[in-house]
Amino acid sequence: MVNVSKIKEGIVIDHIRAGHGYKIFQQLGLDRLDDVVVLMRNVDSEKMGRKDLIKIESNLDINLDVLGLIDPGATISYIKDGERVKKVSLTPPETVTGILTCRNPRCITNQEHITDIKFHLVDAATNQYACEYCDARTRL
């Protein structure tokens, strides 16, 4: 069992579905941070069986849309002086801009390389989003 000490100041992203931690790590650009970041994978969990967990020793402004897209079941705890001061539960965002790309090869966004494409949530159960240009469904 690996032990990682509690952080004094920063953010804990908990209850990440096992296997999704690295995706979140990448999408939030945590590899580019100079602060301490710990990604734990396949941690035993009573509720989930196994889960991933990320601890960030930084007051980073986290893009909750990205997290909601990848894993709406994850929870965010903000830590100050070793104590949790705020806990946030995620929901899939209604719209996301500039995060998803359209996978429809017939969509104009794949010819024009548009970076600020807006996607609308069409099915919260499966976390599916529709491209504002061609309506094709996609997920992260």
Partner: peptide, 10 residues
């Protein structure tokens, strides 16, 4: 009219 979907919107 354009063969790519979403062109008119763009």
């Amino acid at each position: 009219r354009h063969p790519k979907e979403g062109t008119a919107k763009l």
